[in-house]
Design a protein around this nucleic acid. Structure first.
Lengths: 137, 137
DNA sequence: TTATTACTTTAGAATAGTTATAATCTAAGC
DNA sequence: GCTTAGATTATAACTATTCTAAAGTAATAA
């Protein structure tokens, strides 16, 4: 399938050889129609479910970090306990459901652009991240 | 000094006995004119500087967590490597200087209020956090 | 193809931040 | 001053992440 070529390109572009394990990871991350949010732990479990052989954590970390570096994945700071990643790398923000420990996209059109009337001399803005924490009412 | 009474009250209100160690922590956190941002590691070092005897990490964690629970401190998610805390618990946002690994307050008046045109059924908003990452230009 | 080489995978060791434990100590109330 | 419930401490345990080194595999050249 043409997806596979896509995966290989992504890997090559990230400086990684297209190995069996990495292609499997690509399938999970970029193969679906929907973008999704995951922790390394989540990804590791999904890999284990969809594959008989498990992929070692080291490989998962390495691959995710390489994709992060190339902008194929985005890291989301929610709390300090775990890293969350997002396959949707476009500008957008998130709800964080504290009861379910789950991220939900807020598309860019659903938020007014954030305006900051303050500058730091000698610094440029790299990103603006909005995190809306929600809980059951 | 009257500050000391204040510290004792804060501790009592957080369900903690006012011990020597905890009062020392209070002095550092709430004794200055300025609010400040810190990691547990930072706090531990400051304690060591300002005191001859060191306070154990366990005590520092316990006290910080109790203050967090009572809203005397605020936790700020920057990245997954370390927890950052803020003695300024009023509504406000932050710059994060990636080169210096340092947080800088954005006062509420320096940002237009963030408007989100999306609701999650059955959930209420607990907080809206804006983090503006900056780097040297 | 096959051989060679450089990069990968993997399990498990190492590390860092955080939490739990159990013995010793201390604030609070009598 | 006692008594006791709760605190402090050093250290062990735990969890997420990174490192390591041996064995395996993709890429390249012959």
């Amino acid at each position: 399938m043409s997806n596979n070529l896509n995966f290989v390109a992504k890997l090559r572009n990230s400086g990684l050889r297209p190995t069996k394990q990495r292609i499997k990871i690509c399938e999970i991350l970029f193969g679906g129609k929907e973008t999704f949010h995951f922790s390394i732990n989540d990804l590791s479990k999904i890999v284990a479910q969809k594959t008989n052989e498990k992929i070692s954590l080291a490989t998962i970390y390495n691959t995710v970090h390489a994709f992060l570096g190339k902008g194929y994945l985005k890291q989301i700071a929610v709390n300090s306990e775990q890293s969350y990643y997002d396959t949707n790398v476009s500008d957008h923000h998130h709800f964080y459901d504290e009861d379910k420990s789950q991220l939900i996209d807020i598309h860019d059109c659903e938020v007014e652009p954030v305006k900051i009337n303050k500058k730091i001399p000698g610094k440029k803005i790299k990103s603006i991240e909005v995190l809306v924490k929600v809980q059951n009412n």
